[in-house]
Amino acid sequence: MSTLTVGRAKKRGGLWVSQRRFILSVTIPMILYSGVGLFTIGWALVLAFFDYSPGRAGGPILGLGGSNPFVGLKHFANMIDGVSREATQFRISLRNTLIFALAVLPLNLAITLPLAALIESVDRRLKTAFRAIYFLPVITSSVGVAMMWGYLYDPQRGLFNAVIRLFGGTPVAWLSDPRAQFLGVSVAMWAVIGAYLWQDFGYNLVIFIAALQGIPQEFKDAALIDGANPRQVFRKITIPLLRPTLLFVCVMTMLSSFQVFDIIQVMTNGNPNNQTRVLVLDIYDNAFRYQRMGWAAAVSLVLVVIVMLVTIVQMRLLRTEWEY
């Protein structure tokens, strides 16, 4: 009773003041902190228009100007038709990144969607077990994955070539033969795609399983009553209802494969002959190994723009007008 009286004794105004003080004490540090974030983004944008290297002293503001001169759109012009080593490397990286992402997305969906439907159809306890095990690679550190797969691909002592020899085939130098190709894409690229798919598929799998569970049984039952067979139910009911999930999965898979780095850096470091060099690796090498940070910032700007475009296009293509 006494506490209640104390509470009543406080004026309404008092309560409002203490709430406002609380709001301010949380929002002000938050705004300051995300202000640093905004400053960082702005700095990254500005760097893309300078020939900046951290080794040089440069001008008074953030080391820009002076020996780190403003170059305008020169970096971007270079990317399009420059002949310098970094320009050709950029174009190779861009092409490889596109190949990587365009190969990963359909392969991933071709594995995860049927697999999710299979897992969804088994007994509930088994389902949990299957899901848990299929998810293991996702939580494994990508450096660990790269180490494991690098050794699987080892030309002499790796498991894959051992199996090939067992069936009388010729061993393949998976990660180091610059001439080996399959479907016009280098074998080294397929090899890193394989490792990446293995690590990544469990993520989409659990999302599809969750989505399949979320589809109301009544819809399928109604179709069955109307005389549809199970396959028709899957094609005409399940797939259309999965569209929002499909959109989400496509966007997320694309985004993360455009940003692939760990597995490739550890397994091939862009070799052989830059055949597995991708954009983030290019950014990392330019910024932190060759100290060409202006150039690297310009490349990262290109990456960000591509990532945003892909997101927007896929949102448009796969948009649905209704919900259930």
């Binding site: 960082t40 700095w43 990254a44 910032a297 960000v304």
Partner: peptide, 10 residues
């Protein structure tokens, strides 16, 4: 990847 470079400089 975009904020990595200024982040490093900071």
């Amino acid at each position: 990847q975009m904020t990595m470079i200024p982040g490093y400089l900071i």
